[in-house]
């Protein structure tokens, strides 16, 4: 179901086409046995907590078979999805994803204000902004605006960070007359 195959040639090998359904079949089977083993058994005369998740997994399995059938009819025909896929800048993409993952522990560890300034700055840099004043002004003014709204007006207890970062965050709040 991925499009690289479509680009590669008109008749991609069947395994490439069927990769999606096969993945979901395997996922469903493993999931079913995991659910069966890990969820508390049902009390007598009741459906129990395991019924619904197992039903969902059976649904996935059946849908995967249906998908396989849909794709099966397409094998050997050149009119695959074609052209819908955009060329992506893989390096940029991977770095941005990495940044999105890294910022999560950072928010808890250094606190929301510092993490956000750093995040906006590095994200803009990755997205192509290079001027220092754009990077710093956008991230600092933006973050100030956000914490003012969310901490001062909405009373949202955004993470303040661990160790001395908590004190820094509190100091920033005091400096901005938030607290």
């Amino acid at each position: 179901m991925s499009s690289p195959s479509a680009r590669a040639g008109a008749h991609p090998p069947w395994i490439k086409i069927m990769a999606g359904p096969i993945f979901f079949l395997a996922f469903g089977l493993i999931g079913y046995f995991y659910a069966d083993g890990s969820i508390d058994p049902a009390p007598p005369g009741q459906l129990g907590a395991g019924f619904w998740p197992k039903m969902c997994i059976i649904g996935i399995l059946m849908a995967a078979v249906l998908k396989a059938a849909e794709l099966f009819r397409c094998i050997g025909k050149a009119e695959a999805e074609g052209g819908a896929c955009k060329e992506m800048d893989t390096r940029k993409l991977v770095l941005m994803m990495l940044l999105i993952v890294v910022v999560v522990p950072a928010i808890s560890f250094v606190g929301f204000p510092i993490a956000t300034v750093l995040f906006i700055g590095s994200f803009l840099w990755l997205a192509g902004a290079r001027k220092l004043w754009v990077l710093s002004l956008t991230s600092i003014i933006g973050t100030t605006f956000l914490i003012y709204i969310f901490v001062k007006v909405v009373y949202l207890p955004l993470p303040k960070g661990d160790f001395f970062f908590e004190d820094i965050t509190l100091a920033i709040y005091r400096a901005l007359f938030i607290m």
Binding site: P21, G59, M62, A63, A64, L66, K67, A68, E70
Partner: peptide, 9 residues
């Protein structure tokens, strides 16, 4: 339909 159902479940 297959993709939709997979995602739904």
């Amino acid at each position: 339909m297959g993709s939709s159902l997979i995602c739904l479940f």
